[in-house]
Design a protein around this nucleic acid. Structure first.
Length: 571
RNA sequence: GGCGGGGUAGCUCAGUGGUAGAGCAGCGGACUCAUAAGCCGUUGGUCGGGAGUUCAAAUCUCCCCCCCGCUACCA
C-alpha cells in the first residue's frame, strides 16, 4: 500500500505520527496566544516529522457547540451555525496565512463526527462505563435553559461577596456549588434561577482511576507540569461527570426519548481527533483512497500520537480523553501531551474577552508569517508563562532573522555572484581543516536539533540551528573571502563553496520553523523542488551551478513599530 | 485553602551534583563582502531567603518568602 507521505527518509524507517491540535472554540478569532500555545508548535513538529519521512496526520477542527456560541448567537440575533461558520472561516484563513499545515481542519458540526461520537457513547453505555442519574440544577425560567454554574451569580455564602460566580468566588477564592449561592440570579436574564431536577448520563471516570494513574506514571519525558498535575488529580480521585445537558445545540443522544438533551462539549469535542482522522481517510485528501487508513495512526502500536494544547486543557487530554479511549478499547492512548503554559501580553494574561489581545489575522496584515513563527517559537511558554512584547518581536526580527541569518545568506550570495560569474565556485580537492569542521558542524547539528524537535523542545531546536548560523558568520569573518578573492582566488572559492553548503543545511534545519523563507533560500541556492522533500539532512550545493540574484529574506522593522502596536493594543 | 509551574547578570532566558552560561543592552576594538549587517574582547550574578545531606549543590532534602496558573457541572 503506498503511503500518504512518500517523502524520502534518512534512516530507513517511517512512523505514523498523529499531530492532534486543540479545537478552537468558534466564538471569536484566534489570537497570538493560541498560535504560540498550540498551532505553531504543532505545525513545527509536523513539518519536522514530514522531513524525516514519517507519515504525519495533522488534524483539528472548530468546536462548534457549547453555551457561549449559543449565547453569542442570541445576542446577535442569529443562529449558532452562523456564528460557528463565521469563525470557522476565519480560522482557515489564519492557518493558511501562517502556514499551519493541517491535513484536515474540520469541525464538530459534521455528520461524521456525530456518528463517531454516538458510536462511542453507545459502546461506553453498553460496557457499563456510563449510567443515567438524576441531579438538581439551576434553571432560568425566563430563557428556558439550565444554567452552567458559571452563568449564575449571587452572594458568596462564605465571604458575603455579592458578585460571586456559581463555580467560584472571585473575592475569597472558594470553590462553590451554584445551588449554595445566596440570592442567585441568572447572568443570561437576571431572572432568579429555580432548582429543577433533570436526568443525565454520567461517565464513570472513577472506574478508570487506577489504570490512568499507572499509565501516566509510566510516562517518561512528559513535561513536569503536565505529568505532575495529572498525577495529583488522579491521586485525589476522580468523580463521575455528567456528559449530557438540557440543550438543543449539540450532538443528539442516540437513544429514544432524549430529544431535548445533547451530548456535552467536553465529552464530545475531544472525540473530534478520532472523527477527523476518519473523515480524512474517507475523503479525497487521502491519496491512498483507503477509508480504513485512519487505523495506521489510531491502532498501530508503533504510531505516535501527540496532542498540542494549552495548559487549561490538560485534564481533558490526560484524564478524560484517555478514559474514553480505554473504555472504548483498541485505540492508542496519547504518546505525549506537550501542553504549553500561557503567553502573556506585556505582562497581562491574553484573553478573548478582555482587551490587550493581538489578533492573529490582524498581525498578518502587517508582518510576514515567518518572523511571527520565529518569535512565537523562540518565546514559546514551554516551561512557564512567557511574555509577548513587540519590543522583543522587533529585536529578534532585526538581530536574529535579518542580521544573523538573512544577512548571512545575502552576503554569501552577493560575493559569490560578483566574483565567480554567478556560479557556485569549484572547491579544492582537499578542504582545509576549518572548512571540514564547519561542514561537520552543520551536518552533525541535524542530530541534536532533530532530537529537540522530537521531544517538542522547540526553543532548544531553534537555538541549535541558529548557533550554526553564528558559526558560519565567524567562519566568513576569519577567512575574509572578499579580501582573499583578490590575492588567492582558490582560497575564496573554497570559503564560498563551504558557506553555500552550510546555508543549504541551515535552510533544512530551520524549515520546520521558517517554511516560507527556507523555501526562498532553497530557490536562491538553485535547488529543485521543495526543501521539505529533501529530507532531514543537508542537500549538497554543487560547484558550477548558476545562482539567481538574491533578495532579502526578511524586512528590517523600525523601532516605531513598538509604539504603533502599543497604541493599537490600548484601543 | 489544595495542587502545579516558576523565582539564575540591567532585560529575556538556558543550565537537575563537579571550578556560574547565551542572546540583547553597556563599554572597548579590528574589519567593511552584506538589509550600517557581521566579527573579536570586556563590564556585570553571594543562582529568592535560611538550614541540612555531600569531598563537592543553582542542581538533592526540609522550612519560609514572592510571582503565575489550575481547582475539573466554561471549553
Amino acid at each position: 500500500m503506498p503511503q500518504p507521505d512518500d517523502a524520502p527518509r534518512t534512516d530507513g524507517t517511517s512512523t505514523a505520527i498523529l499531530v492532534a491540535v486543540a479545537w478552537p472554540y468558534a466564538n471569536n478569532h484566534l489570537h497570538v496566544g493560541h498560535l504560540a500555545g498550540a498551532y505553531i508548535p504543532a505545525d513545527v513538529f509536523a513539518r519536522y516529522h514530514r522531513m524525516r519521512g514519517n507519515r504525519v496526520l495533522m488534524v483539528s477542527g472548530s468546536d462548534s457547540h457549547g453555551t457561549p456560541v449559543t449565547v453569542r448567537a442570541e445576542e446577535e440575533g442569529t443562529t449558532p451555525e452562523a456564528i460557528f461558520q463565521r469563525y470557522h472561516e476565519s480560522f482557515l484563513r489564519t492557518f493558511e496565512g501562517y502556514g499551519i499545515s493541517f491535513d484536515l481542519f474540520t469541525s464538530t458540526d459534521t455528520e461524521n463526527h456525530r456518528d463517531v461520537v454516538q458510536d462511542i457513547f453507545l459502546r461506553l453505555l453498553e460496557r457499563d462505563y456510563m449510567y443515567e442519574a438524576e441531579q438538581e440544577l439551576l434553571y432560568d425560567p425566563k430563557v428556558a435553559r439550565f444554567l452552567p454554574d458559571r452563568y449564575v451569580e449571587g452572594t458568596c455564602p462564605k465571604c458575603g461577596y455579592e458578585s460571586a460566580r456559581g463555580d467560584q468566588c472571585d473575592n475569597c477564592g472558594s470553590t462553590l456549588d451554584a445551588v449554595d449561592l445566596i440570592n442567585p440570579r441568572s447572568r443570561l436574564s437576571d431572572a432568579t434561577p429555580e432548582r429543577r431536577k433533570t436526568s443525565h448520563f454520567f461517565l464513570k471516570l472513577s472506574a478508570f482511576n487506577d489504570r490512568l494513574l499507572e499509565w501516566v506514571e509510566s510516562k517518561e519525558g512528559w513535561r513536569p507540569h503536565v505529568k505532575n498535575f495529572t498525577i495529583g488529580m488522579l491521586k485525589e480521585g476522580l468523580h463521575d461527570r455528567a456528559i449530557t445537558r438540557d440543550l438543543t445545540w449539540g450532538v443528539p443522544i442516540p437513544l429514544e426519548g432524549y430529544d431535548d438533551k445533547r451530548i456535552y462539549v467536553w465529552f464530545e469535542a475531544v472525540i473530534g481527533y478520532l472523527s477527523a482522522a476518519k473523515e480524512w481517510a474517507a475523503s479525497d485528501l487521502n491519496p491512498t483512497g483507503d477509508a480504513e487508513a485512519w487505523r495506521d495512526w489510531w491502532q498501530s502500536p508503533e504510531a505516535g500520537t501527540y496532542y498540542f494544547i494549552g495548559k487549561d486543557n490538560v485534564p481533558f487530554h490526560t484524564v478524560i480523553w484517555p478514559a474514553i479511549l480505554m473504555g472504548y478499547g483498541d485505540l492508542n492512548l496519547p504518546t505525549d501531551v506537550p501542553a504549553n503554559q500561557y503567553l502573556t501580553m506585556s505582562g497581562a494574561k491574553a484573553s478573548k474577552s478582555r482587551g490587550g489581545v493581538v489578533w492573529a489575522p490582524d498581525a498578518l496584515e502587517r508582518y510576514d508569517p515567518d518572523p511571527m513563527r520565529y518569535y512565537l517559537t523562540a518565546a514559546a511558554p514551554e516551561t512557564s508563562d512567557s511574555d509577548f512584547t513587540w519590543d522583543e518581536f522587533v529585536r529578534r526580527n532585526n538581530d536574529e532573522l535579518v542580521a544573523r541569518w538573512g544577512n548571512l545568506v545575502n552576503r554569501v550570495l552577493t560575493i559569490t555572484r560578483r566574483n565567480f560569474e554567478e556560479r557556485v565556485p569549484e572547491p579544492p580537492a582537499q578542504l582545509s581543516e576549518e572548512s571540514t569542521a564547519l561542514l561537520a558542524r552543520v551536518d552533525e547539528a541535524f542530530g541534536p536539533v532533530g532530537e529537540s524537535f522530537e521531544g517538542v523542545q522547540l526553543r532548544r531546536a531553534l537555538n541549535g540551528a541558529m548557533e550554526v548560523a553564528t558559526a558560519a558568520n565567524q567562519y566568513l569573518d576569519a577567512r575574509q573571502p572578499w579580501v582573499r578573492v583578490k590575492e588567492d582566488r582558490d582560497h575564496a572559492a573554497e570559503t564560498l563553496f563551504v558557506a553555500l553548503n552550510v546555508i543549504s543545511g541551515l535552510a533544512s534545519l530551520l524549515n520546520p520553523i521558517l517554511p516560507f523563507t527556507s523555501q526562498k533560500v532553497w530557490t536562491l541556492l538553485a535547488h529543485d523542488g521543495e526543501v521539505q522533500a529533501a529530507g532531514w539532512q543537508r542537500t549538497p550545493v554543487v560547484a558550477g551551478t548558476t545562482l539567481p540574484a538574491p533578495e532579502p529574506l526578511f524586512k528590517k522593522l523600525d523601532d516605531s513599530v513598538v509604539e504603533e502596536e502599543a497604541a493599537r493594543l490600548a484601543r
